[in-house]
Nucleic acid binder design. Structure first.
Lengths: 185, 185
DNA sequence: GAATACATGTAAAATGTTACATGATTTT
DNA sequence: AAAATCATGTAACATTTTACATGTATTC
């Protein structure tokens, strides 16, 4: 899967492993992320599979950059993947929910502390989606040939916003419910 | 992480790998899941680490069952884990969003077909949370010593419900947005 | 003077998925 | 008659994370 994300970015511009990590962090991190080390190893594998090719760009006073470029085979692979519909719901993993599920033996005060901490985090995240992320996409949208792309990017940003909103709401409800059992206001 | 899920179930009752898979599928699958094969290998590792111990229960006309039991060390490990607060937001992976993000070159009709299919899936899922899952938890809640547990289980069910609702809403919005670009009603 | 950014990567471990293997019983 | 359920597991593979390794330049 990471392969497709990397191919996707490379359709816009050539990039090094380092660049690709930066790109992911500011754009898809909401729904797809990877560690730097995984990006490097995946790119290497992709080159072996001839989906990309690379060349070294020498630099002064910085380590050389290995810049990757998508091949025709890479473009075909990506297109084929986007055309393939997903026919199932993706199963998630939510550590917090797993912990909560098995926390009946735990002191309710500890649960509450954790839930309140989480609420803070998600609220901050929500604000980021509504401000910084929104602005970044709006800027791209300004350039004429990026409007189709920006519309889809906006949709993924909106998902992040709705998700964070939902999460905060759920935390509010859950905090109230746990407070009742703990005899606390 | 799967280790803690398995330990969690084993605090309620002894169980075989097969049983644990069934339990997960009807309870935590909303936020935590695992394949049968991973459950078997993880249990084996847990026994080596002395978090569980097992014995064979012979059966007629069925393969023997290997039934696992949590040890004191296992209980301590689980308790320690639940007491450890999560101080970050978990990063998700949403294949559908990744595909959408890189789908600007794709025929809008294809995108729409996929989004509509997804809407169906999430709507069905939503109804399950509101009926079957809700009923199952309500039944457990009826037994006196399970009320604290059932309250937390209900919270995780509610998350599933809110998530599905949010997803359907987002799909509606996104479908409309893509329809506009495609000049379709 | 310390921390961060720039830039690359390898190695090992952990986690998770897919495929294979077996075979009786029960349900459709 | 075919498919699903019960029940166990192994092997191979793919993915992901964590730790290690290096060294300059810029910012605090």
């Amino acid at each position: 899967m990471l392969t497709y994300a990397l191919l996707g970015f490379l359709t816009y511009q050539n990039a090094s492993g380092y660049d690709l990590k930066q790109l992911m962090d500011v754009s898809t991190s909401n729904f797809w992320h990877a560690k730097q080390s995984q990006i490097y190893t995946t790119l290497k594998k992709m080159e072996k599979d001839e989906l990309v090719l690379s060349h070294i760009e020498p630099q002064e006073s910085r380590p050389n950059r290995r810049v990757y470029e998508i091949t025709e085979a890479g473009r075909a692979d990506l297109k084929n993947w986007t055309a393939q519909p997903i026919t199932q719901i993706e199963s998630r993993k939510e550590k917090l929910l797993l912990k909560l599920f098995f926390s009946a033996q735990l002191d309710p005060q500890r649960i509450l502390t954790e839930l309140r901490l989480q609420k803070n985090l998600h609220q901050t995240q929500l604000e980021k989606y509504q401000t910084i992320t929104k602005d970044v996409i709006a800027q791209f949208s300004a350039s004429l040939d990026m409007q189709e792309d920006a519309k889809l990017w906006e949709a993924t940003r909106r998902f992040g916003e709705l998700y964070a909103e939902m999460y905060v709401r759920w935390l509010d409800e859950t905090i109230k419910s746990v407070e009742q059992g703990a005899g606390e206001q």
